[in-house]
């Protein structure tokens, strides 16, 4: 006799063909639910970004014209040029439609389209926090797996201790220590920036120069964040240890590292997927403090400058960009879960 699997939802077990169709419509519902959620979050971010930075107060024209005598006519002209003379509702409408059509307005500070500023600076940020994020995730998951697998061992205690110490160190402080030790005293790396002006313009010299500048900021960024992945992966592994399926794997004659890598890790990785995707989303905004400490010409230092100016349109646009990248990354994680965790498809 052949047995049928327990049907989902208590209905009679569907034959194979209908099963497949149900699965795909299940995916449609799942997708719609999560895309809908993400869209709502994005709208909320879009709305709140407009108001949050207006709460800071102050007249932008005062900032733009500080220490310079300006006539009321000139002020009025500037106001009109920047659209500040429009009623609030009109400004809001322009902001929404502008953002949705990638027209982010002009920066107060640079008097240039914000879109161009972002496009210029995005590669530097992606390079720094992308490299740092990949290193941190790989390092954290690698060490966390081994730490959890041998809980309480010398390896575990040493790595958890080091990781948490670095994790709790303020980034700006750690960055300055790194600069002092590796740049100032040892003279191994440049202190700040992304390129040296004296570098020959050919591709390889430039690449080498950027790589040289990249080491210290990436080191700082990785050192501060990898412990987060370490601790999550460690506790995720600890949840799996003692599971019956690991005993099965051992009984089959697998080596300890095979039991860990083939059975424990794939199960333990599931809860960390969201985390990794959050990190990917965070690549865009990931390293604001690191960029500021190392004067890295990316979005992070643009954001810090805009805060001090204050350059409201830039803050507004970056806030939306940073939030959107995180929301979209989480959405991507949710979609990925459908494919990697067979249990989600059941519920």
């Amino acid at each position: 006799m052949t047995e049928v699997p327990p049907p989902a939802g208590g209905a009679a077990a569907p034959p194979a063909g209908r099963r497949a169709r149900r699965t795909s419509s299940g995916f449609g519902r799942y997708l719609l639910k999560h895309v809908g959620g993400a869209a709502v979050s994005l709208l909320l971010v879009l709305f709140s970004s407009f108001f949050i930075f207006r709460l800071i107060g102050g007249d932008p024209i005062d900032q733009l014209t500080r220490e310079r005598p300006v006539s009321p006519e000139q002020r009025a002209a500037m106001r009109a040029e920047m659209g500040l003379d429009q009623p609030m509702v009109k400004q809001f409408w322009d902001y929404i439609t502008g953002t949705l059509t990638m027209d982010l307005g002009d920066s107060f500070q640079y008097r240039r389209p914000i879109f161009d500023l972002i496009v210029e600076r995005l590669p530097a940020t992606l390079l720094l926090s992308g490299t740092g994020m990949v290193l941190a995730v790989v390092l954290g998951l690698w060490i966390g797996t081994r730490s959890g697998w041998r809980q309480g061992s010398r390896y575990d205690r040493a790595h958890v201790g080091t990781g948490l110490l670095l994790y709790s160190a303020p980034t700006f402080w750690l960055g300055m220590i790194v600069i002092l030790v590796f740049a100032r005293y040892m003279g191994l790396f440049p202190v700040n920036g992304m390129r040296s002006p004296s570098t020959p313009p050919d591709f390889w010299s430039q690449a080498l120069d950027i790589g040289h500048h990249l080491v210290l900021p990436v080191l700082t960024y990785t050192a501060v964040v990898y412990a987060g992945y370490l601790m999550i992966m460690r506790s995720s592994i600890l949840d799996e240890i003692g599971s019956d399926y690991l005993t099965t794997a051992r009984a089959k004659g697998l080596r300890d590292d095979e039991v860990r890598d083939r059975h424990a890790v794939p199960n333990a990785l599931l809860p960390t997927v969201t985390l990794v995707f959050l990190a990917i989303g965070g690549v865009v905004n990931g390293s604001i403090v690191t960029e500021a400490v190392f004067s890295w010409p990316g979005l992070g230092s643009l954001f810090v400058q805009a805060i001090f100016y204050p350059d409201r349109p830039v803050l507004q646009a970056l806030f939306v960009l940073f939030s959107a990248s995180t929301i979209l990354a989480v959405l991507a994680a949710e979609i990925l879960y459908w494919f990697i965790d067979p249990r989600i498809r059941k519920s």
Binding site: S243, D244, A251, G253, P266, L270, P342
Partner: peptide, 19 residues
């Protein structure tokens, strides 16, 4: 292990790898 002696474990849901 498994060539000389193998085990049919109790509670097959947990004794199998879910993923």
């Amino acid at each position: 292990r498994w060539t000389g002696a193998s085990i049919v474990f109790q509670g097959a849901m947990h004794s199998l790898n879910a993923v």
